[in-house]
Design a protein around this nucleic acid. Structure first.
Lengths: 177, 177
DNA sequence: GCACATTGGTTGACGCAACAACTTATGCGG
DNA sequence: CCGCATAAGTTGTTGCGTCAACCAATGTGC
């Protein structure tokens, strides 16, 4: 029925692409769960919460504006706002108005937050290694970087959200994630 | 403080791995949103709902046991159960007890469901192509398949959930996803 | 300096996913 | 066949993410 609906010039996926797509979708579906469950079990943390603290911990003064923190954690502002509120209630971070711009809010990593992520880091990194990098050759690691980079260019063209800036290698204390 | 807690033999990530990890996390975070928002906007469907119908549509008779469908969509049974209930209320699928095993439930794709996915497919595939495969060289597509395959071996060792079986290329009608 | 758009951020409502508890049916050992 | 373990699904609760609405502060044109 209705053989074409004005958009029959669809560029369908060929066999190779279909295979890659199936695998990619599976990874995207399964990876978050693997990360979350380990962190939840061992450290009462979400993967995203860990990520937030990791970004804060490597920022000078362990402070970042909310919008900057959102960008560095690949999240929207509302999402971050909710997460930070919950984390603040647990004493992991602290929010204070920004002196230079009264609209802005600064998020600080507290001592308790710093201690928490330090304790959580080893097991988390070990988990990442076991589930990801133990499976890849050094060559594949390079390929993965190039591929993910290419995808990010399409997924977040203007770099509005994504963390292509993660080269900001502050040689600060720990490098766990 | 407390320099080692009995687990200081952590295999931290080196620079290359860290770079790859940052990119991969960003992709995993951003990709679902890109897929969901297009399907929600154009077809009132979740990406996962689309995936469910796609798997059903390529099954013989457009029927699958719930547990089999869950495995093929990389999901847990509770998750699928909720989703299918909602889809049934919208007339996209139908649930009927399995004759051979009274415990089991068969999920059927309805005519309405079939029509829905046929309408949704072109725009969805176009979206996938624009955000993913347009960014990759044919060589990278192959690399991605190998990498994702290696990861899946670690993420789902026993193949309990993942779709390594997606080579079941039923040359059926459409191949959209 | 005064409208007005824009930026930065928060809040509330709603939807979906994870987890645990529960129900029912099957299979198996004796 | 009877008791028990296991398999297949469903359901309820709880927590997180998204979206839209909102508020406050900044800046900009005139």
């Amino acid at each position: 029925m209705c053989e074409n609906a004005g958009m029959d010039d669809v560029r369908w996926l060929n066999d190779d692409e279909l295979k890659a797509w199936t695998r990619l979708v599976a990874v995207v579906e399964l990876l978050p769960g693997v990360l979350d469950s380990q962190l939840r079990r061992d450290s009462r943390l979400t993967n995203y919460e860990y990520f937030v603290m990791a970004r804060l911990s490597e920022a000078p003064g362990m402070v970042l504006r909310m919008s900057e923190l959102a960008a560095r954690t690949n999240a929207t502002l509302p999402r971050l706002s909710h997460v930070v509120r919950r984390m603040e209630e647990r004493g992991l971070v602290e929010r204070r108005p920004c002196p230079e711009d009264a609209r802005a809010t600064n998020a600080y990593l507290t001592d308790r937050g710093w201690a928490t992520i330090q304790e959580a880091a080893p097991a988390h990194v070990e988990n990442v290694r076991r589930h990801v990098f133990d499976a890849l050759t050094p060559q594949q690691v390079g390929q993965l970087t190039a591929i993910a980079d290419a995808l990010l260019e399409k997924l977040d063209p203007d770099g509005l959200i994504a963390v292509r800036t993660a080269d900001v290698r502050t040689g600060r204390p720990v490098e766990r994630d």
